[in-house]
């Protein structure tokens, strides 16, 4: 019954599907925001110094594995912890209770936790950009041909991030550590999200 289709991802217009729309139309509506968002991640990656000198296979492999982690950082602010709301791409805001009553659960709660911890670090735009680059190159390495070059790129980005973070908050040594601890959080989120994706098929 189409009325019961739950669209948990806030890149949909609304969490409940329009009952008059076919699954294909629902998917096309979603891809109107999903596809540009993925393209944006690719454009972002092209601007990471050193990323374009990786092999094409390794660029694609990193992007496939890391796109959702980057999007979770990029859209973390849609999950408003103070208000306990999620803003969908239409601009409409839904309370945590309402979304839970629709059937959303652990992934939603984990995303809220992540959003809360990330915003607590009060990153500047520059810090957030460099952190996002670290997220992408720190993603799962399955299928990577030249692990050494990816590790070298990761190393240089982490060094740059440490320099930037310590410059803006010299006294707060723990800030950089807390930031790096977001990486395993993102991996957990990504694994939970992947589980949901497995149950989703587009034909």
């Amino acid at each position: 019954n189409r009325k019961d289709i739950l669209l948990a991802c806030p890149m949909n217009m609304h969490p409940q599907a329009d009952p008059n729309k076919t699954p294909q139309e629902i998917w096309e509506d979603f891809s109107l925001s999903f596809t540009p968002a993925v393209r944006e991640v690719v454009e972002f990656a092209k601007h990471i110094p050193g990323f374009s000198s990786l092999s094409q296979n390794d660029q694609i492999t990193l992007l496939k594995a890391g796109t959702f982690e980057v999007l979770m950082v990029r859209f973390a602010s849609l999950f408003n912890v103070k208000e306990k709301t999620v803003t969908f791409i239409s601009g409409t805001t839904y309370s945590l209770e309402a979304l839970k009553s629709m059937g959303m659960g652990t992934l939603l709660g984990t995303m809220f936790d992540f959003s809360e911890k990330l915003s607590a670090l009060e990153l500047s735009a520059e810090e957030l950009g460099l952190f996002t680059a670290v997220v992408l190159v720190s993603t799962d390495r399955s299928g990577i041909e030249n692990v050494k070059s990816v590790e070298m790129l990761q190393d240089s980005l982490i060094k740059a991030l440490r320099t930037l973070v310590s410059k803006s908050a010299p006294g707060d040594v723990s800030r950089f550590t807390k930031l790096l601890l977001k990486l395993p959080d993102l991996r957990t989120l990504n694994n939970m999200h992947s589980e949901k994706l497995l149950s989703f098929r587009i034909d």
């Binding site: 999903f34 596809t35 540009p36 993925v38 393209r39 690719v42 454009e43 092209k46 094409q56 660029q59 694609i60 992007l63 496939k64 594995a65 796109t67 959702f68 694994n191 992947s194 589980e195 994706l197 497995l198 989703f200 098929r201 587009i202």
Partner: peptide, 27 residues
């Protein structure tokens, strides 16, 4: 997870964006 992202055609979008061959679809 074998390749959950393939359910969304992620690799295709990435390849096209990387190669710069963006379909001219009305945004």
């Amino acid at each position: 997870f074998s390749d959950p992202a393939s359910n969304l055609g992620l690799e295709d979008i990435i390849r096209k964006a990387l190669m710069g061959t963006v379909e001219e679809r009305p945004e």
